[in-house]
């Protein structure tokens, strides 16, 4: 079965915070198999916009065969998406890329002689928080305890939906907001003393770098997986537009800097692989 671009029905397209939308797309071939951390390419309708836009999967309704994406209107492509109403068509392809590796979390949680549950910490910034929903669902289903730390500039979104999964959710904002931590995600984690066995993060690169430092000061960043954002052209590995320097251990045990494609080899990498 070859991969393809499909023309799918938009089932829902709601503004959940100023300039932030959640789109539900009927995509049976993908809803069954998409894993947390994978992404979808949305192909614009306008002829002048030629490149697909990549979006991490937010959630998947396996029964209704719907995938959900959360996006921020930042340019012409996302503006076109925001104008789509229920029943409109959208050209989409995916799931693409490798998702988060949940094997260690699953094995840890299944170990019989464990003293305490595996603690997983999920950290997101801005629209990067959107990928934590499906991730939290799967980590909870695997039997780990989940703490999600969400960071926003001003308007939080998605926290309630995430709480419904059973995760503990902490919210921080850069601009002071009633009832939430004022500051960035690392400040928030320090403030609440959040540490864990495994960490998963998605957001802007400066945030990921700070999270990597946080995890290193509290342990080892091999326990951290980050989902990198990158400008892409193809999204499926052919153009090398997103090829990024990474550390890789060679057969002789030495570390070398090699380039890896965020779209195809990632977008998820281990914290200690990334050349920060």
């Amino acid at each position: 079965m070859k991969q393809t671009i499909i023309t799918a029905d938009v089932l829902d397209n709601t503004e959940i915070a100023p300039g932030i939308f959640r789109m539900g797309i009927h995509y049976p071939e993908a809803a069954d198999r998409v894993r947390p951390g994978q992404f979808f390419n949305i192909y614009p309708d306008a002829d002048r916009l030629i490149l697909p836009r990549p979006f991490g999967v937010h959630a998947a309704d396996r029964r209704e065969q719907v995938i959900y994406l959360i996006y921020e209107v930042t340019g012409e492509g996302t503006r076109e998406m925001a104008e789509k109403s229920k029943g409109a068509k959208v050209r989409v392809s995916g799931p693409l890329g490798n998702g988060f590796d949940l094997q260690e979390a699953r094995e840890g949680a299944a170990r019989e002689n464990r003293q305490a549950p595996v603690q997983t910490v999920l950290i997101g910034g801005g629209v990067g928080t959107s990928v934590l929903q499906l991730l939290a669902e799967e980590l909870l289903a695997a039997g780990t305890e989940v703490t999600a730390v969400l960071g926003f500039r001003k308007h939080p979104f998605g926290a309630e939906e995430l709480r419904k999964t059973g995760a503990r959710v902490l919210v921080s904002t850069d601009l002071p907001q009633e009832g939430v931590y004022h500051g960035n995600v690392c400040g928030c984690m320090e403030h609440y003393g959040v540490t864990g066995d495994l960490y998963f993060a998605c957001g802007p690169r400066p945030m990921l770098k700070a999270v990597d430092e946080y995890v290193r000061t509290h342990g080892d960043d091999r326990a951290l997986q980050v989902s990198l954002e990158s400008r892409m052209a193809c999204g499926y590995g052919v153009c090398l537009g997103c090829s990024t320097p990474m550390l890789e251990e060679q057969e002789n045990g030495q570390e070398m800097i090699v380039r890896k494609r965020v779209c195809k080899d990632g977008p998820v990498f281990r914290g200690d692989e990334v050349v920060w």
Binding site: D47, R48, L49, I50, L51, S230, R231, M232, A233, C239, L240, G241, C242, S243, T244, P245, R259
Partner: peptide
């Protein structure tokens, strides 16, 4: 190893690359 990122920019009906 090619060039530093960003290597891609979309333009009106086209794109720029600097791989």
């Amino acid at each position: 190893s090619g060039n530093d990122l960003p290597r891609i920019a979309e333009t009106y009906g086209g794109m720029l690359n600097s791989i």
